[in-house]
Amino acid sequence: MNKKIVKDAMILTAFTLVLGLILGVVNEITKGPIAKVNYEAEQESYRNVFKDADSFEEYKDFDAKKAEDIIAKSDYANDEILSVNTALDKSGEVLGYVISVTSHEGSQSDITLSVGIRNDGTLNGYSITSISETPGLGMLVQEKAFYSQFENKSESSYTVVKTAPSADNEIEAVTGATISSRAVTNAVNASLVYFQTVLQGGN
């Protein structure tokens, strides 16, 4: 009986080692392609909010802890600045910035978006990179009817309303999806807070 237990244990150990080796090999094989897909998806989102940019570079002075502290002191403490990239023209001049931000206030889960802001503070708009809101409701914040409300505006912040906007800083919510609409709007606002605090004026 003891010999059988030892034998079974050895077989299980060998199986576990082989399985671990296989998983390690598969991970190494897929790591590169997955990274490439993620990179291309990010670049596509950057191009969506900065169509006139020739290239994008990581903002070398981005400090995640500083960004966290800035947002924590604002009205948008449930948002998280993930990264910042500079949008460059063909000559290498900075056109503005793409700020990647996650809202933790979605109705179903987090919503992550890239927000394009020109040097003078004008919004180019946003591009959603991760969302799991309710189909036909919250998911509509990805549609032009909603996101176009932000484009080419230069307000310091935006407020969600349930009726037709009466001011440039008002954003009409998707019908039946006020929570999702507010989550995206506050994520844009958090990006603007970071921009105004750190980036505006070439800081």
Rank of each mutant, 00 (worst) to 15 (best):
F150P: 03
D63R: 03
G121E: 10
I70L: 11
T122S: 12
Q196H: 14
A64W: 05
A187G: 14
D75F: 02
M1A: 10
L82S: 11
Y158W: 10
K31F: 00
S107T: 00
S45C: 10
D54Y: 08
V161W: 04
T129Q: 11
I128N: 00
V25D: 04
A35M: 06
G202Y: 11
L19H: 07
V101Q: 15
D54H: 04
L12W: 02
D79P: 02
D69N: 05
T163E: 15
E170Y: 02
S114Y: 12
Q142S: 01
D69S: 12
T129Y: 12
G176W: 00
I128A: 06
Y59M: 15
S74I: 05
Y147G: 06
K36W: 06
T178A: 08
L17S: 13
A41L: 05
N2F: 05
I171Q: 13
V141H: 05
S55C: 08
H104P: 11
Y97M: 11
K153V: 10
L21Q: 09
V98E: 01
V37F: 14
G121V: 03
V188E: 02
A35I: 00
A167G: 11
K65W: 02
E155D: 08
A41Q: 09
G106A: 14
S100K: 14
E40K: 08
S74K: 05
E133L: 09
Q108A: 15
E68V: 06
A77H: 13
K36N: 10
N189D: 07
G96H: 07
G106H: 13
F56T: 12
T134D: 13
V25G: 14
N186E: 07
L88H: 01
V25W: 11
S114G: 06
V49K: 01
F195I: 06
V160I: 13
P135W: 08
I34E: 14
K90E: 15
T30I: 09
D110P: 01
I70A: 10
T134E: 14
E68M: 11
P33T: 11
V37A: 14
V84S: 06
M139S: 10
N203H: 03
S157L: 03
S154P: 02
T129F: 09
G20V: 07
E93D: 15
Q142C: 08
N186H: 05
H104L: 07
L95R: 01
A187W: 03
V193Q: 06
Q196K: 03
K66D: 09
T13C: 09
L123V: 02
E40T: 04
D52R: 03
V25Y: 07
G24D: 03
D63C: 00
K7W: 01
V18E: 04
S181M: 13
T159W: 04
E80S: 14
L123W: 11
T185K: 07
N186D: 09
T112D: 04
D120I: 12
E40Q: 08
Q200E: 10
A9R: 10
E28C: 09
M1T: 13
A53G: 08
T134L: 00
N169W: 01
N85V: 13
E155C: 14
T122V: 10
S127N: 13
I11L: 15
G202M: 04
T30F: 05
T134V: 04
S109E: 12
A167D: 15
